[in-house]
């Protein structure tokens, strides 16, 4: 993440977002159960099922991190075209 090469930063960002997704997933505790599907002609899942809430949350998080990743990638590409440099430190020169 702290690398000066944009490509490494993007890879780091992908890993970080996956790590955060895993963190959210484990925050609810892992259960040794079946997927939360209701079988045919039953009103509720049988036996122990895994927690549906973190699954839904992580699905949201995955999609958001995809959007963020695509945005970062395009931003770096555009910055490279405009500034002609691959170094993040040089990109910020003249900025705030």
């Amino acid at each position: 993440m702290l690398s000066r090469t944009p490509v490494k930063l993007v890879i780091g960002l992908a890993q970080l977002s996956n790590a955060v997704n895993l963190l959210i997933f484990t925050a609810a505790g892992l259960t040794r159960g079946k997927p939360p599907l209701v079988p045919f002609d039953a009103a509720r899942p049988e036996g122990i099922v895994s927690d549906p809430l973190p699954q839904a949350l992580v699905l949201t998080a995955i999609v958001i991190s995809f959007g963020l990743l695509a945005f970062t990638l395009v931003l770096f590409r555009r910055a490279h075209e405009e500034l002609g440099t691959q170094d993040i430190d040089e990109m910020t020169e003249g900025g705030p």
Partner: peptide
């Protein structure tokens, strides 16, 4: 929260996949 979803989701939404119902 989660047991509530698992218990009620099918009766309330007729969706066997609880994750979809929650989402």
């Amino acid at each position: 929260l989660s047991p509530g979803f698992v218990e009620q989701a099918y009766e309330a939404t007729h969706t066997p996949n609880v994750v979809t119902a929650v989402l």
